[in-house]
Structure formats: C-alpha cells, structure tokens
Design a protein around this nucleic acid. Structure first.
Lengths: 127, 127
DNA sequence: TGTCTGATTCGACAGACGTCGAGACAGTGT
DNA sequence: ACACTGTCTCGACGTCTGTCGAATCAGACA
C-alpha cells in the first residue's frame, strides 16, 4: 500500500484556511470517496463505534439488505482507503477503525471562523 | 432542492460515538462523495479559502488542466451537494462556500478518544 | 480426511461518473 | 443591432462503481 504511506505522511491544514495542494487532494480524496457511499458510511460508523474497538463481519452483514459479497466489497474499499483494518481470528474476521485518516479528514473539513485568519483551536492533533 | 433541506435539518453525532442511522448516511454521503474527487476537493478549498469569501469562476478554471465545461460540471456537483452557492454578477459568476454542511461533516468525522464514551469537546457548533 | 460455515474473489451487468467538443445562453460594449 | 467574452448545457465517449450469483479460500470440527 504505497498510497497508504502517502496518506499517513500528510497533515492537516483546514481546507478553508489555505488552498489544499494537488498532492494532498489526491491523497485524501480517495478516503472521502470511500465514505461517500451510504452503506460504507454506516459500515464505517458501526466499526468505529463498536464496543471493544472491533466488530465481526458476521455482525455487519445482517445489518444491511445486501449480499455477503457486496458487503465484503465495501469493506475492501474502506480497507484500501486506509480507514479500517481487518484481521481474521479463527473462523471470523474482525474490523477495526484506523483513526489517523479520520483525524486528517476532520481537520481538513474544519471551518475556521472567518475566511483568512488561522485559528489554532480548529487544529486537531495529527500524527 | 428537497435533499438540501434534509441535510440542513440533520445534526452531528460523531461517527465513532454511535452508529449513524441510514437516513443520516443517505443525507450526508452525497456531500462526502462530492468531495471525493481531487479536482472538486481543490475547488472547494479554493472557494472556502478565497479572500472576501468568494471567488470568480474565471479564477478557478485556469488553475486546472481541464476544460471550462468540466470545471463547470464539478462546480455544479458541489452546488447540488449543498457545499457551495453561486451567483452571477454581471459577466462573471462567483462561488461562495456554505459552511453548514462542512460543519456537519467535520463533526461527523471527529473521532472521540475511546470507543464508547461521549466527549463534549469533540462537538462543534451546529445550526 | 471430509464436511460445514464464514468470508473473499471472480465474472458479469446496468448504471453512474469524468471528460471533452459543440452549441446555447447571459451580459457588456461598440 | 451586433459582436465579443464568460459560463453553462447537451450529447457522446470510455471508464469506474455497486450489485449479484457462482466459485474459491480459511478454519473448525467431526
């Protein structure tokens, strides 16, 4: 995952503070795109809000009116966007959120009060 | 724009605090999808960070290696997602950011420290 | 080993998306 | 009225996406 490495290396000036450079846009857009589907947004939320920090695919699949392969496809998309991580434990596969990219997106979308001045309060911590 | 009304009416429990309901996901996903393209992410940033709060299409178009119609198409997508507003003033058309949806997205993507507890500091103001 | 269950991959299909060129529309200025 | 400039709409194109059923892979357990 070389793209993942790029995402990890970038950091988070709010979108409304200065123009986001092409490379940052290219690196972060795939994560936004991955969350830009209602099913994946719910999946992401279920994973991120899961008790114990992880959730089994077997709990994810029945929550939607979709087939197993389709859910699997959406989970793969989230995985490739660097938003979640999976690991198999015995028969079941568990998914866990990766907060790093989520942090970056939240910081990017933070709106500073007025157009041009830099407000430090708007900056969330970033690796 | 009935979808826009829905977006405006919704509000912002962080994605990682509790599972986002299907209706919220359906309402917010289009905005994330709209930002999930590198060109549109840069356009959004240029608009949101513009001096005076607005920017002319004639300043947007030459910043990309794309034709006018293509930029126009992307701007329409942002407009339909409720992220920007346009108005024509004489020959030129100016675009302005709508912070409401951006606020909601930032709040949604905010990651609360540990899986289950609600942290009030993570909540940004929301109309 | 064989079989069963859970999850992923593969192949296919309809629909959506990003891009372009050509044409239409809106305002300005002659 | 006419021409010019800036922006948008339309139609077309190849590509990507979401979905499914069928097949495959990974472990568990007889």
């Amino acid at each position: 995952m070389s793209k993942q490495a790029v995402v990890d290396a970038l950091c988070c000036p709010p979108l409304s503070e200065r123009r986001v450079p092409a490379e940052t846009a290219a690196a972060l857009a795939p994560a936004l795109k991955a969350l830009g589907d209602p099913v994946r947004l719910q999946l992401m939320s279920m994973i991120a809000s899961a008790e114990g920090g992880e959730i089994c695919v077997c709990d994810l699949t029945p929550a939607f009116d979709l087939t197993g392969p389709t859910i699997s496809h959406h989970l793969r998309t989230l995985r490739e966007a660097g938003l979640v991580d999976a690991d198999r434990r015995g028969t079941w596969v568990y998914y866990r959120a990766r907060p790093t990219v989520l942090h970056q997106l939240a910081a990017l979308l933070t709106v500073v009060p007025t157009g041009t001045d830099a407000t430090p309060a708007a900056r969330s911590e970033c690796s």
